[in-house]
Simulated assay, not measured.
Amino acid sequence: MTSTPPTPPTPPSVLVFAASDPSSGAGVQADLLTVASLGCHPLTAITALTVQDTVGVQSIQPVGAELLEQQARTVLEDMPVAAFKIGVLGSVENVLAVAEIVSDYPEIPLVFDPVLASGRGDELSGEEIIQAMREMLLPQTTIITPNAPEARRLAESDEDEGEPAIDVCAQRLIEMGAQYVLITGTHESTPEVINTLYGPDGVIRRDRWERLPGSYHGSGCTLASAIAACIAGGASVEEAVRDAQDYTWQSLKNGFRAGMGQFIPDRFFWARGEEDAEPAAEDKGDGQD
């Protein structure tokens, strides 16, 4: 008598709303690589098509909101989703479409990477899109992961006389509805990269990472997708932020220069003999500065 082999466990699924990047450095391709590397099953709803390489973005063409909605709702009706991750949306109509979709699934954690420009500075989200993000997506966001310039732009006020402090930006984003805010320091002129996680009561953790030489294509996509994958796997927000930062730093440390522009993070560094790599963060998980 033969026994039936056990059914393999189903990995948790992460549904990504993002634009396609032909170089696979950033965008939905970066999300796919990251989510899969961390043991989850990636699902996608393409928001826009881009023409870009490791140097910069040449053009972006949003997908129609109806087609975007059909992509997402088809997979949502077919299989359970453990986390949402949002990247470039491409148009106001797509912001509204995604906001309506995720509002039907309030129990699913939402990780929002508000990509406003490429690494070279090519604008990917105009003021109308940003305002729609503030009004429609932030109130539904579990954690938003802007870099410092993105945080300032999202949180700017007509009353500001200069650039608002990062702590002020985080508080404003929480007041707009985000449960947690992780502001990354990759664009700041500090010896180390300092990433700070905020909650309703202020700083939860502040992590310092060795600032690596060079410039990387898709580091923000990698971090946000890693957070989503960790949450999908059962981690708390704070645990997910801690582990995703370590994963992202290792992928950057092992990055490669495939083209003539920025380095591409190696999201599968662990499969190439780098298991002994040591994390470089000074863990401040107690919330102290």
Score class of each variant (00 low, 15 high):
A228N: 06
A18F: 02
I166M: 11
E156M: 13
L173G: 02
E123C: 11
S23F: 02
D283M: 10
T190E: 13
R272Y: 11
T7I: 15
A18E: 10
D246K: 13
A117L: 07
I60Q: 14
A229I: 12
G185W: 00
I144W: 01
D266G: 06
S215K: 14
V57G: 13
L96A: 12
I144M: 11
I129R: 01
R211I: 02
G119R: 09
E238Y: 00
P265L: 13
P200Q: 12
Y198Q: 09
A26D: 11
Q29T: 09
Q171M: 09
V88D: 02
W249I: 05
E100H: 12
G185T: 08
A65H: 14
T47N: 02
E135G: 00
S251E: 11
E135C: 00
A277K: 04
D158H: 05
D53I: 03
L173T: 03
G64C: 10
Q245K: 09
P80A: 13
Q131L: 07
P80M: 06
C221E: 08
A65C: 08
V241M: 12
Q61I: 02
L43A: 10
M1S: 14
A72P: 03
V14H: 08
G64P: 07
S225C: 13
G87L: 08
E188A: 12
G185Q: 02
S225E: 09
A178W: 03
H217S: 01
S157D: 14
E93D: 15
L124P: 00
G25A: 03
L89T: 12
V168D: 13
V111P: 06
T141W: 00
Q140T: 10
T47V: 08
D53V: 09
S236P: 13
S103F: 00
L68T: 06
E175K: 06
V55G: 04
G285L: 07
V115T: 07
V168L: 14
A72N: 05
P5S: 05
V193R: 04
N94T: 07
P164I: 01
G273T: 01
Q171C: 08
P12S: 08
G287K: 09
T7M: 06
G199E: 05
G27M: 07
A224T: 01
G27T: 00
L173P: 03
A280S: 14
D53T: 05
A244K: 10
A148S: 04
D243Y: 08
L182G: 04
P62I: 01
I204W: 05
R73T: 15
A170Y: 10
A26V: 01
E188R: 11
Q58N: 06
